[in-house]
Amino acid sequence: MSKSMLGIIDATIHNEEMQELTLKRSIAAVPFGGRYRLIDFVLSNMVNSGIQNVAIFPRYQYRSLMDHLGSGKQWDLDRKRDGLFFFPSSENENTGSFQHFKENVDFFGRSNQKYVVIANSFTVSNMNYKLILERHIQNRCDITHVVKEDETLDMYVLEKDLLVKLFMNHEQTGYRSIMDVVEDITSGYKICNYEYTNYAAVIDSLESYYEHSLELLDPVVWKQVFVKDHPVFTKVKDEPPTSYSKDAYVKNSMIANGAIIEGHVENSIIFRGVKIGKGTVVKNSIVMQKGVIGENCVLDSVILDKDVKVEDGTSLTGKTDSPYLVKKGSVQGALMNS
């Protein structure tokens, strides 16, 4: 038990630059990589690091997140002892995660792990927290802050008792989150940086979502994110294999199961249950679940959210630094874009 860890996923953050993808879902529940949600990566990292007790602290639009994770069965967290816990905030305004933790102090008191890993819900990586904990103990740090090239990954390791002390006294100290403590050079705590050298992507804007999604098409990135011995778990949905017509053409793309491909797909990520019609060309794009793209369409540098319908003959074009987004459940027609 001396090196046991409690996992804390701070899903309280609402980023205005992600608003177009988070109108009806939290950042944690944003689809990513063809069949995953963003939270799958950090949650899988925790499970693969031997963490059996995980608490998620959401604040905004968390219904789809709870539906996705359910009892935690896919992550082997549906347990009689420890397991997966949700603690939605009762606060309507952004008062900081420490207040959120304080509202649920009883959970921390019941948890018997000595150390805590705190992570955000929107960093894509395949990280072993055991290695970070070992460095934390070896260097006798109060707080270990995980960074990549001197940029924060919003991940921290510390003793649970110290965390409880920090959030119980936050009204006196003025600290609203663990980041406030790390950034305060007068705090008196020993803050250590842990430089993470493998792939890690912080998804905090529409542009970063688009950029880092398509990075998965790079075999070097793919091999660092999807590691055989450290799998990324997600909610299982039983669907048939993808069907390709004789005229279909696919190049350098990720295509999930349950899709029907009759057109041309290149440098794109296609989620479950998507249909792409004859004569249609999809390039440099992301098409989320159950999207239906008609015949003779052209899509380039486009993000289609879930359940979008694109009618025959429609042309949608964005830019690599400014992708064209179609909102969830909407319809795009040729006349609309003429």
Rank of each mutant, 00 (worst) to 15 (best):
L69K: 03
N139E: 15
F86P: 14
F107Y: 13
H145F: 05
Y60M: 13
D106H: 03
E151H: 13
P58G: 11
S121R: 00
L153A: 02
K130E: 07
I56N: 11
V117M: 04
V146T: 07
K73L: 11
V147T: 09
L153P: 13
D142M: 04
L84Q: 07
Q74Y: 08
Q113W: 09
E93R: 11
R110W: 04
N139K: 11
Y60E: 13
Q138W: 10
I56Q: 09
L84C: 09
H136N: 06
V147I: 14
F108H: 05
E93K: 11
D82T: 08
I132W: 02
Q61D: 13
V124G: 08
M66C: 08
L158K: 06
S97E: 14
S90Q: 12
N94G: 06
S90G: 09
G83P: 06
Q113R: 12
F86G: 14
A119I: 05
A119S: 12
M66Q: 12
N53K: 12
D106M: 10
G83N: 04
A55M: 00
S71N: 08
K130W: 09
N104G: 02
A55I: 00
D67G: 09
L153D: 03
S71Y: 01
I132D: 01
T144D: 06
I132G: 06
S90A: 08
S121T: 10
V116T: 07
V157N: 00
Q52P: 04
G70R: 00
S121Q: 03
M66H: 03
L84H: 08
E93T: 13
L158S: 08
T144M: 05
E134Q: 15
L84K: 02
Y60D: 12
F87L: 01
F122W: 10
R63A: 13
A119K: 00
N126Y: 04
F98R: 01
Y156R: 02
E91Q: 09
H100P: 10
S111N: 12
I51V: 10
Q99G: 04
A55S: 11
Q99L: 06
V124S: 08
F86N: 15
S97Y: 08
V117R: 01
K160D: 00
K80C: 11
G83K: 03
P58N: 10
T95W: 14
G109N: 02
G83H: 04
I51E: 07
L131W: 09
F85D: 13
R135A: 15
A55R: 02
S125E: 12
D67H: 03
V147F: 11
K73P: 01
T152G: 12
S71T: 12
S97N: 08
L153C: 05
V147S: 05
E159L: 02
E149L: 10
K80T: 14
V157Y: 01
G109E: 01
E151M: 09
D150M: 10
N120R: 01
G83Q: 02
W75L: 05
D154R: 05
S121F: 01
